[in-house]
Design a binder for these strands. Structure first.
Length: 552
RNA sequence: GCACCCGUAGCUCAGCUGGAUAGAGCGUUGGCUUGCGGAGCCAAAGGUCGUAGGUUCAAAUCCUGCCGGGUGUACCA
């Protein structure tokens, strides 16, 4: 409907003034109309005419259109369009148009041997939801997580593991019970970090461990004692990640890439482009783009080891080998924003076509309000696995499963409702709120509609002459859904979808208060609206990855 | 020093490719029994949009300075 009106305005403007435009339609306050455009004010200058005069001319033409009931001019020259109720009602029942394209999205990215913290939780939800919106619009999406399974942090962990085992005895790992493996590994990392900072001898041994890990990958060593410890613990780590992903109900990754797979191609890419893209400086290989305002970054350090920069070029290369994509989104913390620009700059210099497909999306950190309640429940620990159980405690529900669906809905919605980029505050008490602009509010607004639909036989869609105000408001809001989905991918703005679904639910709740559906004379008109509403809200929640319970 | 991000109601945030009285939620105060689930609905109070200029018919939105907070700035990721 939006596009159809927009096209009509475009044609009218062309006919009247012989000017090519792409009119933007906005959704004004309902008192003004269903659609509005400021095209007259934009044309005023170039045409040298009074904006209201232009608006009047356009309005006159638009009034002759079938679907349009009323066109008014307001303020400095806004053109407000109101549709006939019959046309509006009919336009409610349209499908979301699908487009084609393929997206590779890289997110979550926890490092092996370390534990997942709230920040990973947050980014995993953002990535999963964004992927779902693309999928909803018809894109093929590849989900990838890329984590460090080599590097100094692994050296620290390996050192501490061996230390704890009393030597390189892989068989002793079997003595560690399955349910404590993840925490045991997390402790090893902490101990390793501490030793690295405080103990000179340990520091040297850790550096050796780090090198040995790289070597075992180079030699594809699966059998030495050291290697067996490494592979076993890496697997423990991955098992813990997957268990977590399952618990928060996100779609599984199509590919989990370790840095061990990318440092070799990364090194090769950098070396192949030495002199062309990269230069040597103080024994390191760098990219200096300071004239374009970017930082100088080291891609291969003076010890000949690849830095994350090289590994990141490696992963771009590896993904391009395995997946064919039109666009690649990589999510990182916002502190890596400027860093990412350098990597993309390098990629564009090496391969402009592949470089142009890169897009970086940075998210802020999760902060805990004043944290009083939060800290008493979770302590200073911000392990991701503690969040859901803690949230569940605050939810009253008939069953465990329902409690989980609601808690998950509350958490995810809290993560998704703010725009991506800024820090977000996560106060467990507020975040798990079930009132107002919250996940459970949306879930409840869905459950109410489901409950109505269980009590009626589905009416076939009727033509209608007149809509009452609450019906009309619901109809108008429903027609916006396709635009909002598109807007959400265009701006990576999941909060737009959240805000829309919240508004939709609010409008439905008002409708619910004022309009009876079951056994009402207007049931034939209202039932299709409720059906469409239920489908839209359910679809929207599923697109965000928020559970849609049948009852609460 | 330079670069990037942020500063909107008591709190948490929308709005920022300039447009019609700056919007939500929480919190505060006061209402809603005969109708499909009150995790709901209605209403009130609450804002010099950090600050000072500039551009414009029109600025929370664009430009510049300043103040305040955060992050990054060569061998970490």
């Amino acid at each position: 409907m939006n596009e159809s009106i927009s096209r009509q305005v475009q044609q009218v403007v062309h006919r009247l003034f012989n000017v090519e435009t792409t009119p933007v339609l906005t959704r004004p306050d309902p008192q003004f109309g269903d659609f509005a455009t400021n095209i007259a004010m934009q044309l005023a200058k170039s045409l040298g005419k009074n904006p209201r005069e232009i608006a009047e001319a356009i309005a006159t033409e638009l009034r002759s259109q079938d679907a349009i009931n009323e066109v008014s001019i307001a303020g400095p020259g806004f053109i407000n369009v109101r549709l006939h109720d019959s046309a509006l009602y009919a336009s409610v029942f349209t499908e979301v148009p699908k487009k084609q394209g393929s997206l590779l999205i890289e997110y979550s990215c926890p490092n092996a041997f370390k534990s997942i913290h709230v920040g990973h939780f947050y980014q995993t939800i953002l990535g999963d939801s964004l992927a779902r919106v693309y999928e909803r619009l018809g894109w093929t999406v590849y989900r990838v997580t890329f984590g460090g399974d080599v590097g100094r942090h692994v050296g620290m962990s390996m050192w501490s593991i061996i230390n704890e085992l009393g030597g390189e005895y892989p068989d002793k790992l079997a003595e560690i019970p399955e349910d404590v493996r993840a925490t045991w590994l997390a402790e090893r990392y902490v101990m390793g970090t501490k030793a690295f900072e405080e103990d000179q001898q340990a520091k040297e041994e850790i550096t050796q461990c780090n090198k040995r890990v790289y070597e075992l990958h180079n030699e594809n060593d699966k059998t030495s004692d050291f290697a067996r410890i490494y592979w076993t613990c890496r697997q423990w780590s991955y098992d813990a990640f997957n268990q977590f992903y399952e618990s928060i109900q996100v779609k599984p990754f199509d590919r989990s890439i370790g840095e061990s797979e990318t440092f070799q191609p990364g090194l090769k890419i950098v070396r192949d482009n030495l002199g062309k893209v990269f230069t040597e400086s103080d024994g390191a290989v760098i990219l200096s783009e300071e004239k374009s305002g970017l930082h100088t970054r080291v891609f291969i350090n003076s010890g000949g080891l690849p830095t994350y920069e090289a590994k990141d070029l490696g992963v771009i290369w590896l993904e391009a080998q395995e997946f064919e994509y039109d666009k690649r989104i990589i999510m990182t913390g916002s502190e890596q924003k400027q860093y990412m620009q350098v990597v993309f700059s390098a990629q564009s210099l090496i391969d402009p076509v592949l470089g142009a497909k890169q897009e970086s999306l940075t998210n802020g950190t999760v902060k805990f309000g004043d944290g009083k309640k939060m800290s008493s429940r979770l302590g200073n620990v911000t392990r991701a696995v503690d969040v859901l159980p803690s949230a569940k405690e605050a939810i009253k529900a008939k069953s465990q499963e329902l409690q989980e669906q609601i808690a998950l809905g509350a958490i995810k919605y809290t993560f998704l409702k703010s725009s991506i980029g800024g820090d977000i505050s996560f106060d467990l008490d507020q975040s798990v709120s079930t009132e107002g602009n919250s996940g459970p509010y949306l879930q409840y607004a869905l459950v109410r509609a489901k409950s109505i639909l269980r009590k009626v036989s589905v009416a076939t869609q009727q033509s209608v002459d007149h809509l009452e105000q609450p019906e009309r408001a619901l109809a108008v809001c429903l027609t916006r859904y396709p635009e909002v989905l598109q807007q959400s991918v265009d701006g990576s703005s999941l909060h737009d979808l959240c805000a829309y679904l919240y508004e939709l639910s609010q409008i439905f709740n008002r409708f619910y208060e004022q309009c009876k559906v079951v056994d009402d004379p207007r049931a034939d008109i209202r039932i299709p609206l409720v059906v469409q509403y239920e489908q839209t809200l359910r679809d929207g929640l599923q697109t965000l990855g928020i559970p849609t319970p049948e009852e609460m």
